[in-house]
Design a protein around this nucleic acid. Structure first.
Lengths: 190, 190
DNA sequence: TTCTTTAATGAATAATTATTCATTTAAGTT
DNA sequence: AACTTAAATGAATAATTATTCATTAAAGAA
């Protein structure tokens, strides 16, 4: 009995991400994905029941990777500013290094592909970040403002910064990151 | 001789924007647009040579409307902070009131539809904003940092704020806007 | 080695979507 | 009113894309 090739799923994901980055969601087809992944079109249907499921699976995978990266090296026992900067930097770096995923996820939000379940799970994603900002308020590091507004502010600056860095085709230097962090921190700080 | 109906172009644009907001770029078809606009599919091809041109026209229209809104009521003779707040508020309000356009434009950036010309023109869009931020630096209102980083920071916070307000389904209150402006200003100020 | 099972293939089919075109309709001109 | 011209229509066609399926290939079990 022949066994399924575990590497194939990842090949398909990589192929799909590459295509989305180039042409957007509206530009990817099952045959293009198969070709890019180096497999036959029919093989896609062994690993995914259809295009919708392929996209939802990939989205979930991206969301998971994204989420997992955020709190890497975060130590709640350390001072708040240090921890906040760690998370802030994790988010920025993840988005720079995984720009394809970011583009894909952005495009999916307004697509006919994502199902209810995928959508719902995604909303829960921000909860740990929410708690982090709350901690900042509790410790009087941050202004006593609506947590969602603060969180949105922080996230927005990162998202746009990454997009801009990407399209201007110059890598963000370490000093740029410091600058961006300072802007964010100064905005939020008490 | 029958004359072209000038209202039709706008009807088509409205229809397309509505559909994009619901289903994304990947979800709109020429027949769906026609149906939504209340005209026959063939009629679309009288006003636009094909789907690509339709989308590029709509994109240009949206970009123009967006750009025109930014400096409404801006008076360079008034103090910087006042002028900056005017522009900041204009951008925020435009994006709230024209959320469909915003979604459409976002989706277009990574689509196979936008042509070179449309892309290029779009990049020039931010120039007046760039100059505004430069003025802030010259008057020592803003930190002496890279103008692009400052601009990106400002824009990012607005973009994300609007998205969030929309998806959380609660209208931004006047106080929320004040809060958001303060966060932005405090981040950028000297 | 032979058998069995499932992965893999890619051409064929089904479904969807863009585009065309013969025909009709409406508006302006003579 | 009769004529002319271009808009409008929507069914038909072309093009593209998703999905299936008969067939082959590969890997483990007997």
């Amino acid at each position: 009995m022949k066994l399924r090739d575990d590497k194939k799923t990842q090949q398909v994901f990589d192929a799909a991400l590459g295509l989305v980055k180039e042409k957007g969601l509206a530009g990817i087809t099952m045959s293009a994905i198969a070709k890019e992944a180096g497999i036959a079109t029919g093989t896609l249907y062994i690993y995914f029941t259809n295009k919708e499921e392929l996209i939802n699976s990939l989205f979930s995978e991206c969301r998971k990777a994204s989420l997992e990266s955020y709190f890497r090296n975060y130590d709640a026992a350390r001072p708040f500013k240090e921890g906040f900067k760690t998370v802030w930097t994790n988010i920025l770096k993840f988005r720079i290094e995984n720009f394809e995923e970011v583009v894909f996820m952005d495009q999916c939000y307004h697509s006919p592909f994502l199902n209810e379940c995928t959508m719902k799970l995604t909303k829960q994603m921000k909860y740990p970040l929410f708690k982090l900002v709350e901690r900042g308020k509790e410790e009087n590091a941050f202004k006593q403002l609506d947590t969602f507004l603060l969180l949105t502010f922080m996230i927005g600056a990162i998202h746009e910064g990454v997009k801009n860095a990407h399209y201007s085709r110059k890598a963000l230097k370490k000093t740029d990151m410091e600058t961006m962090f300072t802007l964010c921190w100064d905005g939020m700080k008490q």
